[in-house]
């Protein structure tokens, strides 16, 4: 009975959705046209998605970072802290050596993706996830105790708070320099030449902050979820 009723609801909703899709109209997308035509000129970031995320709609990104922050701090209190153990396979020395070998490269890739977020595909979120993979790899191969000893959870939460605070403070810096909150070009930052590593004002700085925040947040989440009582 329950299944039948759910089926009816689902079929009605899906067909409504389908009919809507089929009768969709398109508008003239002035906004995206503007971003495409003038985005590079106004923000000096070649990657338009980054330009939108960290300049035009940077406030959204602040909210997004806040969501990760909230979830990371929630999960950290939900799971027990005292008895940290986890079910894991014992890996052979080959696995452990390879992991140690891979980690420096992961770090370089992560840092690169964060730093070049405004020039090439990537940015704070993608790079942050790659950095978080480092701690996740350590946890999976060497166990949670070792991982927690290597990167203390206090340091991780400090990094997370620091990244999030940095984002807001950079926004307030725009105000201090005479613009509005999170203003970039309009508060007289030197935007530089598009394509250079040091260009487009606060965008790379915001990227670094987000990267720190996401990396720390994700590793807190993973290490907390994997703990067993």
């Amino acid at each position: 009975m329950r299944k039948f009723a759910s089926l009816v609801v689902v079929v009605i909703l899906s067909s409504l959705l389908m009919m809507t899709f089929l009768s969709l109209s398109t508008a003239d997308y002035e906004l995206s046209e503007h971003y495409i035509n003038y985005g590079v000129e106004e923000t000096k970031a070649l990657n338009l998605v980054t330009a939108i995320l960290f300049d035009y709609r940077a406030f959204d990104t602040l909210g997004e970072a806040t969501v990760v922050f909230a979830v990371a701090s929630t999960i950290a209190f939900l799971v027990p802290k005292r008895t940290a153990s986890m079910i894991s396979a014992r890996f052979s020395i080959i696995m452990q050596q390879t992991t140690s070998l891979v980690i420096p490269f992961l770090f370089i890739i992560g840092a690169y993706i964060i730093a070049y977020g405004h020039i090439s595909p990537g940015g704070g979120f993608a790079g942050g996830v790659i950095l978080a993979v480092i701690t996740i790899l350590i946890t999976v191969t060497f166990g949670i105790r070792y991982s927690d000893r290597q990167v203390r959870s206090r340091i991780k939460s400090f990094m997370e708070s620091f990244g999030a605070m940095g984002f807001v403070l950079l926004g307030l810096l725009g105000m201090a320099l005479g613009g509005n909150f999170l203003a970039n070009a309009n508060s007289h930052f030197n935007l530089g030449v598009p394509g250079d590593l040091i260009s487009s004002g606060i965008i790379p700085h915001l990227n670094v902050m987000t990267g720190l925040k996401v990396a720390a947040g994700l590793s807190i989440m993973f290490n907390s979820l994997i703990k067993e009582e």
């Binding site: 906004l31 503007h34 971003y35 035009y56 406030f59 613009g179 509005n180 999170l182 970039n184 309009n186």
Partner: peptide, 13 residues
């Protein structure tokens, strides 16, 4: 009305 990031009305938030 407060324009975040000093973008004009339509571009930003």
């Amino acid at each position: 009305v407060y324009h975040l990031g000093d973008w004009d009305n339509l571009l930003g938030i």
